[in-house]
Design a binder for these strands. Structure first.
Length: 1123
RNA sequence: GCUCAAGUGGCGGAAUUGGUAGACGCGCUGGAUUCAAAAUCCAGUUUUUUCGGAAGUGCGGGUUCGAUUCCCGCCUUGAGUACCA
């Protein structure tokens, strides 16, 4: 009986499908009590986008690894959830639809069918009953539902989580928005509760939109009017579209955005508790881009200079105050717990000095002091604070301990309606300084090095502060920069450009005048769109200052800045900086922020690079928004009317008016009375409204699918609470690293949001993640000779004719090692065959061109099938070509490249399965190398695992059928088995699948050598191998007489007693170099070993009479003799 | 520029509390079997050598009885990212 992979694999794949062998049971629905008792384990692959090209051998790599792990966990007694589905919304299907008019749903369906067939052939243990497709209305109903939840939420910084918008409304009703500490749009006008109640409904909605987690905003995008779509930055080259070269303008468009920035810190913190690859965590950390620094406000000069008269404290005094701050009384502690969470503008400090007084708490931004009453000098304090422009609120200890919430409410009220208005101080000095420039800096310690400021050309203040003389130059500059895309500006780092506005700002500490410039090295949408320039400490500022001849004051002690800025911070002392002089970075930083806060023009702040995510796409093939517009304001459709299904359109292009493709739909209006989508004609009716024309981006559906698998067919809920509580999170997630800052960041964001809302039980969706490496293709090349006339020999009449008579020549790879050799071979051929005269040969030069040959035409020895090559339609040029052969064969060159159709190096798994079987494919993909590493594919290597399978088969089956005996296994045979159990279990736990394949090979080789046919060894061996090669092991398992699938068998238990040895082949090294081995019993003592080794004749010979200086003996390991 | 990862035979790769470098497989060479081929089996395959050995894990140092493994400094390749203030 021969190993027939085709028959075996087909049979077992059918068996698994028919018996639903891998269907995972949720405890609630379980009739089988066995599964409910088992611990759960959730193994997930990143679901594929079903492209038209189908799978190549690189795609299943991760699936095979996860499948092995899933099967292993089943053997280990876990209830395993191992689902699969399709991320089936996407651009290629839409592009195809635009070109052919074919509905994307149709092509997607066809592609899915192909994918499924290909996947099934590899024998995965997926639970297909839980399949999801993001483009299926049954699924995207819940994507729309999540969108509504986001819309109905705002981010409360005080509780640090998302809350329902209704809580926000009730705060507005009671106290307006001054006390609200939210992550929201930048400039929201403040209003009182009375004002809120007086707003119209539309006005209220407009205000709420500024707080919602999914919100509409005017975002600047690259709009291409000709193509009628928004382009991504990388689709624009030199200001025109990459496709077609049409002009692109930057245009503000109303787009949906997601307030992911609210979760920046939690996304960062969460990384610490998940087991994800470090490089991936690093790139997320980078992407979030947290930087700690300060917000500083510079007044624009109105002509009055202002010196600082504030009382300063030495650093020592400040340190002493710090101590005080740490020791709080009970009441102080309670109140501080309430106040400390206030951030941004309402941030409180404790134990703070104002003038000569130490106050309990102060909010510097709002000029409000909170104190415990009963201090001796209360009258004097009140008077001084009032003079300085502070409001004071006082409480007794009792008030705080009895009801801290009442106290907080009073404080909130005081913050909002100050009794002392902060004008006195400002009036005298700042009357004319109407404008302020806020900047963010990570180096507030260098503030005394500021010699100018730079605003982004788009900064709103530019037009207000520019002086008459500079207006023309500034406007010209703004115009010029507006034409360039942001990417272009970023790419062009070398050119320094900028214009002086004519205006000056006042240095907040020194009162000195500093020039205000605009320059495109400052980006409008990072930070505040303005920087304080410290040329001595920042290279960009330095270059700018040099270029425009602006002063570069040096504030670093003993540092030479004549050539470049000094950007290092550790170890350098600050100089020429008033109270910061003599301090090092850390202390200077703290003190600078401290002083800024005290004087009220700055505060410590953390900035993130992470920007809110634009959520609208002007595309057809995506989830429609459950949104209609009433009086211009977006309205959510009630969840009971979901899904809102994608409408039919006759063309998948934008409309002539520039609307997205959904603008072509004729049935795309919301009947708010009938609660359904109706024809656009009904828009005349008062209760019918237009629906949103954008669709959601690709990442919408993939940001929560892992939760859906837990309860995939639930029609009434996102997923039932019981199933979410049972499966909780993905235990093992396998997929490519290209999703590091896309899918994996957005999915974490949504999971945290869903957690805040109490919908899911955990706030990180995947405990462990592994990035599988890419499988690269091994391209094959043929070498074509391209003749050119040498430039100095060029004459019109000869050249054309000479070149035209030359045939196409292809030279076999190992005939040449250099370009010169190649040229010589080709010229000789031309001369031999009489195509060229020697004179002509001197006139031309031959250039070698490597051309991709289809890898399917090349065998494992790199020999090209020339006839087949000539007959390929794409190779018509070579139909009559001359092939210069080596030993009668054309050898191709090889190079490792990314697997892609255009490189003709794609290997289809179907062909491999056909020839060698799925088990061989699975083993081989694992055998290639470590899972995480990129590695080249070479089909020839598969013969190794294929003959392994044949050898394995022969251990169990001979010509007459099963040949396994019930005899007792020998010690040696048991040792092989247990050695294998140990190694394979360790390898799987460590995801080191490549090494376990070689362990199997060793075991089979050894058992074959022993002619072992004992069931006692061979049966457990099958279970060990079954995660890797499930078909052949099922077959042999049933041949051994088992009725149940091998997947129900439990993993063999390792018993160390079989590995105990009595003797060891000791390596004997001299000065660390192993020279020979001596076999010694393992129970010898150190001394006995030394005697045995030193008396051995090989040792004596090696020492050649010299006495060993030292003998190192590690019993059971090694002997090292130092001589 | 910055961040991260990796450099071991002809090739993929193995070797972790520092202890026999090159497991396992491909490829190649020779042999057996065969009319022949496929398949299968056996032997060999890091380099060098005066056949005793000697050298050897990107390069240069260091720690150690002993380093592919730990430390310092470089080089190369790959990936990500960038006027981020």
């Amino acid at each position: 009986m021969q190993y027939n992979h085709k028959e075996i694999e087909e049979n077992w794949q059918k068996f698994w499908a028919d018996n639903q062998t891998f269907k995972a049971t949720n405890p609630a629905q379980s009739s089988d009590e066995g599964d409910a008792d088992k611990p759960k384990y959730y193994v997930l692959d990143m679901f594929p986008y079903p492209s038209g090209a189908g799978l190549h051998v690189g795609h299943p790599l991760g699936y095979i690894a996860s499948d092995i792990y899933a099967r292993y966990k089943r053997h280990k007694g876990f209830n395993v959830l191992h689902p699969q589905g399709y991320d089936s919304f996407g651009l290629p299907a839409e592009q195809y639809a635009i070109q052919t008019g074919q509905h994307p749903a149709k092509t997607t369906e066809a592609n899915i069918t192909t994918y499924r067939k290909q996947l099934d052939k590899i024998g995965f243990s997926f639970d297909w009953s839980r399949e999801v497709r993001t483009s299926d209305p049954v699924y995207y109903k819940w994507t729309q539902w999540i969108f509504i939840q986001l819309f109905n939420s705002w981010y409360n910084k005080d509780t640090d989580k998302a809350e329902d918008v209704s809580t926000l409304v009730s705060i507005f009703k009671k106290q307006g928005n001054a006390t609200v500490n939210a992550v929201a749009d930048a400039e929201i006008e403040s209003f009182s509760s009375e004002a809120w109640k007086a707003f119209s409904k539309t006005e209220q909605e407009a205000i709420l939109l500024q707080y919602r987690l999914s919100y509409l905003s005017d975002t600047e995008v690259n709009w291409c009017p000709v193509l009628g779509t928004v382009l991504a930055n990388d689709e624009i080259v030199n200001g025109v579209s990459e496709r077609g070269g049409h002009p692109v303008v930057r245009k503000k468009m109303t787009q949906w955005s997601m307030r992911i920035s609210a979760y920046a810190q939690r996304l960062l913190d969460g990384l610490e508790k998940i087991d994800w690859p470090q490089p991936l965590k690093d790139s997320q950390t980078n992407w979030i881009g947290r930087s700690q620094g300060a917000m500083v406000s510079f007044d624009v000069d109105g002509g009055v200079s202002k010196g600082s008269t504030d009382i300063k404290l030495s650093y020592k005094e400040l340190e002493a105050l710090k101590e005080l701050r740490l020791n709080l009384s009970k009441a102080e502690g309670i109140l501080w717990d309430e106040l400390k969470n206030k951030k941004g503008a309402a941030k409180f400090r404790k134990k703070y000095t104002i003038g000569a007084f130490l106050v309990d708490y102060v909010c510097l931004a709002k000029n409000t002091i909170v104190e415990f009453s009963g201090k001796e000098d209360e009258a004097a304090r009140t008077a001084f604070f009032a003079k300085e422009g502070f409001n004071v609120v006082r409480f007794t200890n009792e008030e705080v301990t009895e009801s801290v919430l009442k106290v907080v409410a009073k404080i909130n009220n005081a913050l909002q309606f100050p009794t002392v208005v902060k004008v006195e101080k400002a009036a005298s000095t700042k009357k004319l300084a109407a404008y302020k420039i806020d900047v963010f800096t990570t180096r507030p310690d260098t503030i005394f090095g500021v010699s100018f400021m730079t605003l982004a050309p788009e900064h709103p203040l530019v037009s207000k502060i520019v002086t008459g003389a500079q207006k023309k130059a500034v406007n010209a500059y703004i115009k010029a920069t507006a034409k360039r895309s942001e990417r272009e500006r970023m790419a062009d780092v070398k050119t320094i450009s900028g214009v002086f506005t004519g205006a000056y700002a006042l240095h907040p500490f020194t009162g000195n005048k500093v020039q205000i410039w605009i320059g495109d090295y400052v980006l409008a949408n990072y930070g505040t769109g303005a920087v304080m320039a410290v040329p001595c400490g920042d290279q960009r500022d330095y270059d700018f200052a040099k270029h425009f001849d602006i002063a570069i004051p040096n504030i670093f002690e003993g540092i030479d800045i004549s050539e470049a800025a000094h950007t290092g911070k550790d170890g350098t002392k600050i100089a020429n900086s008033d109270f910061l002089s003599g301090l090092k970075y850390k202390k200077a930083l703290k003190l600078a922020i401290f002083e800024m806060e005290k004087r009220g023009f700055g505060y410590g702040k953390i900035n993130y690079r992470l920007r809110d995510a634009v959520f609208s796409r002007q595309r057809y093939w995506g989830e429609p928004f459950p949104v209609y517009y009433k009086d211009g304001m977006p309205q959510m459709i009630d969840e009971k009317h979901l899904p809102i299904v994608l409408p039919e359109v006759e063309k998948y292009l934008p409309t002539e008016a520039g609307e997205p493709p959904l603008g072509r739909a004729t049935t795309w209006a919301w009947d708010s009375r009938g609660k359904k989508v109706v024809s656009n004609e009904k828009l005349k009716n008062k209760t019918v409204y237009p629906l949103e024309l954008n669709t959601m981006p690709g990442w919408a559906g993939s940001s929560w699918y892992f939760n859906r698998y837990m309860d995939a067919s639930n029609e009434t809920e996102f997923a039932s609470k019981e199933s979410l509580d049972y499966w909780k999170e993905v235990d093992l997630y396998i997929g490519g690293s290209e999703h590091a800052t896309g899918h994996l960041l957005y999915a974490r964001f949504w999971q945290k949001f869903l957690f805040d809302k109490g919908i899911v039980p955990v706030d990180e969706f995947a405990k462990k993640l592994i990035n599988q490496g890419m499988i690269l293709g091994t391209s094959a090349f043929v070498y074509r000779a391209t003749p050119f006339i040498k430039s100095d020999c060029f004459t019109d009449h000869t050249s054309e004719a000479t070149l035209n008579k030359l045939p196409v020549i292809l030279v076999s790879k190992n005939l040449f090692t250099s370009d010169a050799e190649f040229e010589a071979i080709v010229k000789n051929e031309f001369l031999d065959k009489g195509f060229l005269t020697p004179d002509e040969a001197d006139m031309i030069m031959i250039v070698k061109t490597a051309i991709h040959a289809d890898v399917s035409l090349v065998n494992s020895s790199d020999e090209l099938d020339i006839e087949a090559f000539k007959n390929q339609p794409i190779n018509q040029d070579y139909k009559k070509a001359t092939f210069i052969l080596k030993d009668g064969t054309y050898f191709v060159g090889r190079e490792v490249e990314k697997m892609s159709k255009s490189k003709y190096n794609v290997v289809n798994p179907d062909d491999i399965v056909e020839e060698y079987g799925a088990d061989a494919l699975r083993l081989f993909e694992m055998f290639l190398g470590p899972l995480e590493q990129a590695k080249p594919w070479k089909t020839s290597g598969i013969s190794g695992v294929y003959s392994f399978l044949k050898k394995l088969w022969k251990l169990y089956v001979d010509e007459n059928g099963v040949a396994v005996s019930k005899e007792k296994a020998t010690k040696e045979e048991l040792k092989i088995l247990h050695k294998t159990i140990k190694k394979v279990a360790e390898d799987i736990e460590n995801f080191s699948f490549n090494t376990s394949v070689s362990t199997f090979m060793i075991a089979v080789n050894e058992l074959t050598a022993l002619k072992c046919n004992k069931n006692e060894v061979l049966a457990p061996m099958l279970v060990l191998l079954s995660p890797y090669a499930p078909h052949i092991t099922e077959e042999l398992w049933s041949k051994l007489g088992n009725k149940e699938s091998i997947s129900t068998a439990s993993f063999p238990i390792f018993d160390a007693k079989h590995l105990i040895e009595s003797a060891k082949e000791y390596p004997i090294s001299f000065n660390g170099k192993m020279r020979f081995t001596i076999e010694l019993p393992l129970d010898l003592s150190k001394d006995e070993i030394e005697v045995a080794v030193l008396s051995d004749e090989k040792t004596i010979a090696q020492l050649a009479g010299a006495a060993p200086k030292k003998v190192i003996i590690v019993p059971g390991k090694i002997v090292n003799i130092v001589s």
